[in-house]
Computed example of a mutant assay.
Amino acid sequence: MLVPTPAAAPPTDGVAGWVVQVMDAVGAPGVGLLVGVENLFPPLPSEVILPLAGFSASLGTLSLVGAIVWATLGSVVGAWALYGLGHVLGRERIVRLLEKMPLVDVDDMLRAEEFFVRHGSTAVLVGRVVPVVRSLVSIPAGLERMPLLRFTVLTGLGSLVWNAALVLAGYALGEQYGLVAHYLEYVQYVVLAAVAVGLAFYVRTRLRRRRAGEREASRDEGESHGRDDTTRETARR
């Protein structure tokens, strides 16, 4: 059972102070609103929003379960919006749109697209814990016309894990919630390494199967030629 550490008052200035103001004004749905905006505007980091929501829950100003549920709903709705943009606008218009947005790097979307092309459904699920990719992977999912139901389920599961982990960490750490973002970088490295190992294993397995199939086809072709030669020799006799 998580027991929150003694906590001081939440911050009142900067981005963190603004996040607190939204949550104070709207309650747990405010967490969902903030996370939804974070999906559409990646420079607003969930690494600040979610631990701070957990911190607020430790003070009793938010429901812990409500914060997690609303954060996940906000993630899904924000992801739907980006999925819809990719589905409707197409790649060229998306790139032109991102070029006009401040603090958004088109290269980030291109990396997210490459990540999606390589990993497919896994990119949508695991991508929710990868910086920047977490938000932008929804665009290539829309571009590639991934079935909406599958996209929603994968987004919901991945977002639930991510949101719950960060909210609970902020709840447990109390006023030291800022440590979450510090250590999260190392966790993300581990996730990326695991994805790389899994991809390498998948590629290796596929290559082995392909080579085995090529050897089998070559052997069958050799046997076929041998039978043809025997038939021609018999016919000459």
Rank of each mutant, 00 (worst) to 15 (best):
G213W: 15
R219D: 10
R227Q: 12
A200R: 15
S224N: 12
G198N: 01
V187Q: 01
Y202I: 00
Y171H: 11
D228Q: 13
V197Y: 06
V203S: 07
L192N: 03
T230H: 05
R227Y: 04
V190T: 14
R209G: 00
L207S: 12
A194L: 13
Y171L: 02
L179A: 11
E175N: 03
G226V: 04
R232V: 09
V190M: 06
A212V: 04
R211W: 11
D220C: 04
G170V: 02
A212Y: 14
L168K: 12
A200K: 09
T230D: 12
R204A: 06
Y189A: 08
S218Q: 13
A181S: 09
G226N: 13
L179H: 06
A196G: 08
A181E: 07
A169I: 01
L192V: 15
A172F: 06
A212I: 05
V190P: 00
G198K: 01
H225Q: 14
S218W: 09
A217N: 03
R204N: 12
R210F: 09
R219H: 11
E233F: 08
Y177C: 00
V203P: 00
R206W: 04
Y189C: 02
G174P: 08
V187L: 08
E233N: 07
R209H: 15
D220Y: 10
E185Y: 09
G198I: 02
V203G: 06
L184F: 15
V203I: 13
V191P: 04
G213Q: 14
H225D: 06
A193V: 14
Y186V: 14
S224I: 01
D229S: 13
G226H: 05
V180C: 02
E175P: 02
G222K: 04
G222S: 06
G178C: 08
D228L: 14
F201E: 01
L199R: 15
E223Q: 15
A200V: 08
R219L: 11
Y177M: 03
T205N: 07
H182N: 15
E221N: 12
